[in-house]
Nucleic acid binder design. Sequence first.
RNA 1: GCUGGAGUAGCGAAGUGGACAAACGCAACAGACUGUAAAUCUGUCGUUCGAAAGGACUCCGAAGGUUCGAAUCCUUCUCCCAGCA
Length: 327
Amino acid sequence: MDNKIIIIGGQTATGKTDLAIKIAKEFNGEIISADSRQVYIGMDIGTGKDVKNLEFTMYNVQNKNFQIGYYTADGIKIWLYDVVKPNYQFSVGEYQDLANRVIGDIISRDKIPIVAGGTGLYLRSLIDSLSDITIPPDEKLRKSLSQLKVSKLQKQLQGTDRHKFFRLNNSDRNNPRRLIRAIEISLWKKTNSKIIKKPVYDYCAIILVNKEKTLEEKISQRIQKRLREGMEKEVRFLQKKGYDFNSPALSATGYQEIKDYLERKIDKDEAIDRWLKQEFGYAKKQLVWFKKFLPSTKKIFWFDSQDHHSYTKIRNLLCHFLKKPLS
RNA sequence: GCUGGAGUAGCGAAGUGGACAAACGCAACAGACUGUAAAUCUGUCGUUCGAAAGGACUCCGAAGGUUCGAAUCCUUCUCCCAGCA
């Protein structure tokens, strides 16, 4: 009974999905997306889900809140795309739950789960304990707390969990969202005992990066490609559906910019320029995150996806990890 | 050619005699982050020395002037926009 999973993380536009498919073919795997924006139905082009002509198959993984399924690309299953509509506020906790279920299912069918995506926290939720992450949100509480100023929230947290407050750094102490969550957790703990049962996996993580200049070129080309493939149409469709462009889903890079262009607030060049900047910024933040949170234990390996030798090295690494003979 | 408006840091934009190296927004750079993470939040952001406190230098289109003191007032020049010719 192996519980091995392969993780592929890294910056946007470095070819994580392509690599995942290649590995899946070679090692009899299935892919689980770890991307906070690809979970949204109808957001395909802008989030880089390459699913235009792919078939989606519903699958019963026994979850009361969501219906999930998989796309089949090149004979390989890709899970956790298209989980909710863009007006839904999806979160790490829900991701963790769904991903664990899917991983369990894949393992039970004697296949190798390959978790691939750029949302670092989603990946981390599968390999670190992150105990409080399972504590559910309290919408009523959030709503009432969101009216308060930061200083009030700080006071409130000091009241409910003094230690927690003083453990926060300056940045988090000024972050209303974090303060509210901290209050939520502390209140929850007062009336609930923690029972957190989480699978523990043996994992091997591959982090893909590119040299900065190469990455910028790739991002720029990809934006052009997305425009050709119909990004404008996708945005128009989402507008028509009446989705809130300030929602988490639509805060994905590119959507706001193209919307502003369609509404003639800015011209097309301006929109593309802003989109590019957003995307570069995103890639940089990803790098900061991966450097910090995936400690370089012997389970985590960094590769430049532009390096021709990378794939051979990755392959050897995975053969070793999965205890398969090198061929 | 005349009349009116305007020229402020990478961009946008406040400031209209002293608390101005100059609000604020964007961009940039650095960072934080255990249920919104492509989110949210923090710091830096004229140059320079310093770990910091702080110091030095340059600065609000250009040049000159008034004033103890000028981004702010005056003169000339220059560039831009609008109206009239």
